[in-house]
Amino acid sequence: MSLAIEGNRHGRASGSGGIDADRIFHGVTFGAAAIVLAVLIGVFISLLVGAWPALRTFGLGFFVTESWNPVTEKFGALAPLYGTLVTSLIAMLIAVPVGLGIAIFLTETCPRPLRRPIGIAIELLAGIPSIIYGIWGLFVFAPFMQTVVQPAIISTLGAIPGIGFLFFGPPYGIGLLTSGLILAMMIVPFIASTAREVFLTVPSVLREAAFGMGMTRWEVNRSIIIPYVRSALVGGTMLALGRALGETMAVTFVIGNAHRIPSSILSPGTTISAAIANEFTEATAGIYTSSLIALGFVLFVITFAVLSAAQLMLRQMKKKAGE
């Protein structure tokens, strides 16, 4: 298959467009592909250069300092890092089971004529821009959290000794929990559509054999299908995690932008991306701006690692499916 293509690396000089034109086109396409590489390297270098003054001033202490004080010019990344991780964790705890549930529903329970429309509707949810989730979160969801959900949580979960400190304090409406829930709504469709896609790659022989053994629908999904596509599921989930970690606008509206590490997940906090979005244009040049870019650099490194791992796992799955 590849022989003819590789053998004719630059074709024959005849007809319209000869070897030269082909060489030029080859070079141009290569240049365009190299731009992709250059962008990544450019992002890395430019962020590192911008972050350098802050990283040099604060050293490794930058990552373990909670204080974020533009007046005394003391900056630390711990509070935004904490907020980013906690909101993403809340989002994943909810979105993974719900997303998998939707995928199983779409491949198993859903009546056939409804599969396509429901699948499309769920994917439309993924297409809604994050600023829409933000404005909706601020004006509709946060008041709902403040008046209904949070008082209920405070009076029930907040009263349990041992974990009560997590659900403590006045109901602000905005905060870490609200942000985590909005993030969950945003990533559920990603998880659901990746999971549905990989479920469909499971050979029907496996499924039929399992049913033939007398397994119930749930048992087939839990013990046969999910284990069969495990690595792709983990990959898809990490892809969603990458999105949650870097999501900006939806979180910026509802996080509260408070640079501290609250013990309660009902309290306002901040995330890396929300801190950058909220403060960057107002930041004075110098160490303040540099600290924000340093936050961006940290976010870039974290998401790059997560997304790379996700890609590797999805690739493994593709290879397996290709065999």
Binding site: V39, S273, F300, F304
Partner: peptide
């Protein structure tokens, strides 16, 4: 591989890059 990573990279990072 890099293209697939850039596909889901946080867009605010792109903003910071172009700012710089």
């Amino acid at each position: 591989f890099i293209n697939d990573v850039l596909l889901s990279a946080p867009s605010i990072i792109v903003g910071l890059f172009v700012y710089q």
